[in-house]
Design a protein around this nucleic acid. Structure first.
Lengths: 200, 200, 200, 200
DNA sequence: AATGAATGAGTCTTCATTCAT
DNA sequence: TATGAATGAAGACTCATTCAT
């Protein structure tokens, strides 16, 4: 028997595997329990319900991602490079964690509770990495001061998210995620920097 | 009793109302039937299953949207203006059809069948409006020829989609959708046009 | 396939059998459905939940019992004879319908909903047969006018109920229900009539 | 921490409180443990299962009640007065211990094990107080010798029980328990004594 | 085409009880 | 004795879908 501390993590890992393979709605709590090597009821000692497992996967993985991305992105102070790093980090995560990405891109959105009740800070915190960069860039006179960081963060996140979802759904074949990253970098850096062409 | 030809449309209209109010999973086929004034079983004369109602709402509304957007966007041949028009048209649709937008932005994504099996042409057709503009713009020497239209269409669509979803979820209060449109126009036009700054 | 009108009754009959055999809490809805020859879900077209089946058995059988007892008891106007008839009718019902009596005496009391939420009129109506007799008897100067009919009805019902329960639990062997009836008749008639001995 | 000997009693007291507040089926063993300040598992060192807690509450309280009632009732040898004292004692107990009475009158009957398996001596012993009085009364020539003490004990107990249950369920408001006691005394004393009227 | 009564598959969750410590 | 984390059996109910009329 593994030590207690493991059990919660074993459940979360099992859930990622099961959710990725069968989808959230087709995954039975009993499947997860079996995979994790615990009794069905044990899951409810650690999680309030099935939706909460999904949300916790998100919360805990995002926590790691946020720490990594922040370390990566804010290591230097070159704004344009930070944007580049953020985009690369996002898509690299997807590429390196396809199973987890599948859960984030597809399964999570099928949980009513996640979509309509989750107002967790993790997603905000992640999005705020972007708006912080934008804000800094505007103060440094590098980025277009007319843009709202709050809008930009959604625009960039939405673009990354859609590209990631398509990559997942294409079963990772048709699509070169690295090249996509480079193209998004071009679009957003040119889109956000102070434009010598004047406004459109 | 209205003429037969109406019945299909009455069902679809009822479904939009019910889905928007209760969400896809909490809407019962019996609710839709009642609202539409038909028997439960009648719905299955017109639609294969509950998911198909959702997909048909999408298909038929998208058909209209595509026609409108195409007429609007391709009326002239000024590429930058076409991009502007597309972005405005997308967000204006959301603003004018909040109930339908709620179904598109939130409920549709909760249908396993839509997410994982729908490969309908309507969404492609809509996205291709963007890639067609991009392609034209590149041929006219206005837009950055290094960008893949297929990537750009997802980036722009993702950005619009995320902004729209946030607007829906914020219950339309905090957010000025017109200003968001203007900002997205700036970002994407600057992001896509031939850049006098050289590449990053 | 039997006609529709039968289905509700088939379910109720099946439920009496199953409840009497296994007890309320150990009876599965699926058992009742199977015995009744209907699908599990069909039961929920006729009854809100499992407790309601039990309550409906009570309601509908009591309706019959009340009609019979009233016809029997009020056929003449001899008060003492009416009391006698009521007591006999109650215990005769128990003796002739042991399965139903088991449900009434034992299973019904195990349903939280019946005990704590049921305020149905049938039980009141049955009890009021007694208080009506008492009231009449007091007006005729036959019964002790100092007694509250509302108290008497509970005292007599309680006595009958306890005797019946004991008979059910003894599996009908040790106990002569007819003799018990005669004894209760003696006790209550002497207890209720105007006492030449004066009050205690 | 209180001394060990206390623990059993603390559990029983906690159980009375919890059962009275939530009902037997809605009370969780964990609730009782918490209220008693012991671990869940500890309860099973003192009681075989949840039903046994209920039965033990009954057993132990009945033991006290029996002792009290016997002392009270048999202090003199006036049969009619003894009947009076028994009835008063029963209803006075209910009035003074409403929480315990609620458990006895309502919750106890919802335990399958109590209803169908309990053949404990305490209830018999309590009932036998009545039949002993009756027997004595018959030997003294005061009570009707035709009545079976075993029937009378159930009749009187049933009457008291029903009156008590109604009082509990009426939330003690509509009902004057003292007056009820007086009326039951009249009914039963006249019902049981040797009748100068002859038999009915 | 239309009805709507009937079907029956499908599963999350609770909680009394156990047992390793 | 005591703990409390872990167990796992157990089942009512919903609702999309069917089909006899």
């Amino acid at each position: 028997m593994k030590p207690k501390i493991d059990k919660r993590i074993r459940i979360l890992n099992a859930a990622v595997t099961i959710f990725a393979k069968k989808g959230f709605y087709n995954s039975k709590v009993a499947d997860i329990a079996k995979k994790a090597g615990v009794a069905d009821g044990t899951i409810y000692l650690y999680f309030k319900n099935k939706d909460e497992i999904l949300i916790m996967i998100f919360e805990e993985e995002m926590e790691k991602v946020i720490a990594e991305v922040k370390a990566e992105v804010f290591s230097e102070n070159d704004i344009l490079d930070n944007i580049r790093k953020f985009i690369l980090a996002h898509l690299t995560f997807v590429k390196k964690n396809p199973r987890l990405a599948q859960v984030f891109q597809l399964e999570l959105r099928q949980s009513n509770k996640f979509i309509k009740e989750y107002t967790g800070t993790r997603l905000q915190e992640y999005l705020n990495i972007i708006s912080d960069i934008i804000h800094d860039g505007q103060q440094q006179g590098v980025l277009n001061p007319a843009l709202h960081p709050g809008l930009v963060k959604r625009a960039l996140f939405g673009a990354l998210d859609e590209v990631a979802t398509h990559w997942i759904l294409s079963k990772n074949v048709k699509y070169n995620l690295d090249e996509s990253a480079e193209q998004l970098i071009q679009i957003f850096i040119n889109g956000l920097r102070i434009s010598p062409n004047g406004h459109v």
